[in-house]
Amino acid sequence: MALQGPIPVTFDMVFPQGCYIVGEVEPVKDFDASTPQRFVQVRDKHTAELVWQVTVMDADPSLKAAQKTVAVKILNPIQPVPPAPMPGLPFTPVEFDHMTVTPYVNQAGRLAYSIKVREMRAPRNNAKPAKNEAA
């Protein structure tokens, strides 16, 4: 099969209604290399970059409560900084660039996806200007 490894996707394919940060950006622990006295951060097996993680809430209203939050892994040499909060919103909207998904079977025997990204940023304004109508 020609399709192997992480599958490239767009932000709109994964989060068509958008998403919001609901946790801190944290380093992902390398459980094999870490000891009780020493924390070792995991590195991506394809790029060798440090892996960070942030929990986001999917804005899709049709999702069940258990499907609303997902961990997004960010590959970056330094800790990514979330976008600034927006006034009047309880959560910070966010978008990701250079996304991939990797399907796997979770401990419950169900299909799940690992989401990895290269960049985290504030959402772009997708509003389109109104068309001028001729009188």
Rank of each mutant, 00 (worst) to 15 (best):
P36I: 13
A2P: 15
K45S: 05
G109M: 13
A130K: 15
T47D: 02
S34Q: 05
M120T: 01
Y113Q: 02
K116A: 13
T55G: 02
L111C: 11
R110H: 11
N106D: 15
T55K: 13
A65M: 12
N125H: 08
F39C: 10
G88Y: 03
V105K: 11
T47P: 05
D97M: 06
A66I: 10
N76P: 00
R43Q: 05
V56F: 02
K116S: 11
P6N: 12
V42W: 04
F91K: 02
P16K: 14
A33P: 04
V28H: 02
F96D: 10
V105H: 05
L3E: 15
I78S: 09
V81A: 08
E49C: 09
T100D: 13
A127C: 07
A71P: 02
A65K: 09
S34F: 02
P8V: 10
Y113V: 05
K45Y: 11
P103Q: 13
K64E: 13
M86I: 15
P6S: 07
A130T: 14
C19Y: 10
F96Y: 09
I7G: 08
P85L: 12
D32M: 05
A135R: 13
D60T: 04
K73Q: 09
D32Y: 10
A2G: 14
P87R: 14
Q67V: 10
L111P: 01
S62G: 01
I74R: 07
T10S: 15
E119A: 10
D60V: 00
P80M: 04
I115V: 12
I115F: 13
S62V: 04
G88C: 05
Y104R: 09
Q67N: 05
D12L: 14
N125C: 01
A66P: 11
N126V: 07
V72R: 01
A59N: 10
V25F: 11
N125L: 07
Q67H: 07
P36D: 09
N106R: 08
P83R: 00
P87K: 14
P16I: 05
C19D: 07
P90C: 02
E95C: 09
F11Q: 12
Y104T: 01
P27R: 07
D58W: 06
R110D: 14
P103G: 11
A33N: 07
V56A: 03
V14T: 11
V117F: 08
V70H: 04
Q17T: 03
K64Y: 04
